[in-house]
Design a protein around this nucleic acid. Structure first.
Length: 265
DNA sequence: GCCCAGGAGCCCG
DNA sequence: CGGGCTCATGGG
């Protein structure tokens, strides 16, 4: 197995998949050149000037909450619902009732939790308006976001990177799985461990931090899945997974529980 | 039917 | 500080 560094790894992922153009937006200004859009509506590859308005910043922040432990397609449907009802705006959502908001974002899963958290998040934005958050440095912004209920380390970092365009590295379950399989860690790393590894290896450049996270998601969704399809993987020569053929069981607790529950019925 | 998804909070030893 | 549990819809 050949060793590969995080910088070279980025180059290979980019060469393989190309720019991903995160974060997707529904409220993309209609006067923006439509050729800037990517293969999916709302993506804008090679353009790092979005979001441009506070409305777009709010949409991205909302999206980071809606997509928590949820596929983007499900979160996107919830955003689409709000958009179609002309409710995809801070001053509209804050006025919705718990039940009304819950029904609109139902497709994103955990809608009871998310409905409360989004309404609380709106209250948070009254105390700390986007105009104020924009002026903060990464550390203060991260601290104040994580302090809010419903915003953990990943959601905070996603907001900072994709909504506020500040170079902080976003770690998710994909990233940990990916790095662990490649052999960067002996035991499963914590969020902060993973984050430090990237930030020490990669200079804080917005476009690179943006694309790197998006590229890892792209790779993890299609190749480095829960049960990986290593036969199709272009990173095989650099991956420990290629040598250690160990059967992995990564059942989630809720699935295990529901299975037992159903069996006992 | 089962598995999994761009997590976070809470509780417990 | 780490592990288990809960929340829940929808696509493959």
């Amino acid at each position: 197995m050949m060793k590969i560094g995080l910088s070279a790894l980025f180059d290979k992922l980019l060469a393989q998949y190309g720019e991903q153009g995160w974060w997707p937006l529904l409220s993309l200004d209609p006067d923006i050149n439509p050729t800037l859009r990517g293969q999916f509506t709302g993506y804008h590859p090679k353009v790092y000037s979005f979001p441009k308005t506070d409305a777009q910043i709010f949409e991205i922040m909302l999206g980071t909450i809606l997509t928590q432990n949820t596929s983007w397609t499900n979160a996107d449907k919830a955003l689409g619902n709000l958009w179609q009802n002309r409710l995809l705006a801070f001053d509209k959502i804050e006025k919705l009732s718990f039940d009304k908001l819950g029904s609109l974002i139902r497709s994103s899963g955990y809608f009871n939790q998310k409905s409360v958290r989004i309404l609380e998040f709106c209250e948070f934005l009254h105390i700390h308006p986007i105009s104020q958050l924009k002026k903060m440095n990464i550390e203060s912004l991260r601290k104040i976001l994580i302090n809010q209920r419903g915003i953990g380390p990943e959601t905070a970092d996603s907001m900072i990177l994709y909504a506020f365009k500040k170079p902080t590295f976003v770690i998710d379950a994909y990233t940990r799985r990916f790095l662990t399989r490649l052999g960067f860690f002996k035991t499963s790393p914590t969020y902060e461990q993973c984050k430090e590894l990237f930030e020490e290896a990669i200079p804080p450049e917005l476009s690179k931090y943006n694309e790197y996270h998006a590229l890892i998601v792209q790779h993890a969704v299609h190749i480095c899945k829960t049960t990986p399809t290593c036969g199709d993987c272009f990173l095989k020569p650099f991956c420990k997974q290629n040598i250690v053929k160990k059967k992995r069981k990564s059942q989630k607790s809720n699935n295990t529980k529901s299975k037992i529950f159903k069996k006992s019925q």
